[in-house]
Design a protein around this nucleic acid. Sequence first.
DNA 1: TCGTGGAATGTACGTTGTACACATAATGTA
DNA 2: TACATTATGTGTACAACGTACATTCCACGA
Lengths: 229, 229
Amino acid sequence: MVATEPLIWHVPEPPGRRNALTRAEIVRTAITIADAAGVTGLTMRAVADALGSSTPMSLYRYVRNKDGLVDLMLDEVSAEVDVPAAPGGDWVADVRALAMSLWDMIGRHRWYAELVDTRPPFGPNTLARARFLLTVLDTAGLRPAVGYASLLDNYVTGNAMSVTRELAMFQRFDIHSVDDLVAYAGEMANDSLDSWVLDMPQLSSDGRFALGLDCLLDGFAARQARMEP
Amino acid sequence: MVATEPLIWHVPEPPGRRNALTRAEIVRTAITIADAAGVTGLTMRAVADALGSSTPMSLYRYVRNKDGLVDLMLDEVSAEVDVPAAPGGDWVADVRALAMSLWDMIGRHRWYAELVDTRPPFGPNTLARARFLLTVLDTAGLRPAVGYASLLDNYVTGNAMSVTRELAMFQRFDIHSVDDLVAYAGEMANDSLDSWVLDMPQLSSDGRFALGLDCLLDGFAARQARMEP
DNA sequence: TCGTGGAATGTACGTTGTACACATAATGTA
DNA sequence: TACATTATGTGTACAACGTACATTCCACGA
């Protein structure tokens, strides 16, 4: 029952002295870099360079290792997700708003979707959001709440990843307009998705996200109605 | 409109000579390694070692680079997914069976979920599955079909990733039984998910997957009914 | 039998994360 | 004020990764 290495949350930040670095500063810088350069651009050296007079090794006192830094980054941006103090009356609205807020946050920090599933989700902000979601679902009678909650989270991050990947693919093949997409689909006619791809721009990524979210919530509602009529 | 580097599918396998390697052999070996050692154990050196008298560089003639190898691996295991020759009458049953088959395949190749979203999905087997799914959804009146299809795929792979991560976490914290889990939840009482985690084993991962799938399909059915009554 | 070209290999480079030893600067104490 | 202590930053170095390049090897057609 002993973790081979403690998570960063259980390792207190070392006391700072004048001019010393801080976790907050390191994390903020790392987030800026990841926002701009993506997940591949996020290296310890890049973070150290951006901090000015620092070598990579300076960071390790504060964040233990790169996983620790990533943990802190993930939780830091999780704070941008609006978590109401208390559930409103309508559980569908509550869940929907929470998912939307998470989606918006990921839109600002695309790397989040790629990294969140690589680390255990035990940061304070992440836990606060999870607790709220679980409360709402549980009082709605959707049990086990963890099951429904993980369905929702997976949906949001999964969708974000797919959109990110799609975007990267468009860039890769120099697709900037619908016309480009049509031409490209023609090029791959033999073994491609044929004419279906052409429907893709019909729905914006935000629209697609909302559609799927509503589908999922429909299913939730059906299960709830079936439980306590 | 020109790809910076062609995908492996557009690069024909070089002709072999006696005792020469083949793509199929390399891919098969790589899959075996990834099955056993996970995505971190999958290195070019490991594959070359497993092939016996080979250095990493031998592989590059056949697979171009590691991305090419991963593309081939992903498509190879995609062949294990049952794709019917033609749609049956019931679109819900068709979609459900396809998703289940994909889920089962990922259960045998856990690395799939972690890698599938890192590469463009243009392998022949992948495309065959996509085409079938799109046909079923489109004839069911769920349009744009690509939207619904991506919702489904994301759901399956997203759920697989979450289960994989969960499993890894249990291993990491030496959790082997429900009792262990309870004890662990107690340890993290202060900032943890409190009592909710305890509900987790109530539903097997397969059960949770089926639940979410049915929720999603409920939503699909509701949209379809609304469209063509 | 020998030359030729395709196939395999060996060497080496740039990057990554990060361990370890050392230098430095700030602080507590005398 | 002066020194010892210790927190803090830096430099060097290493293993592992993907893979470019040059070289060696070997099977085949002549």
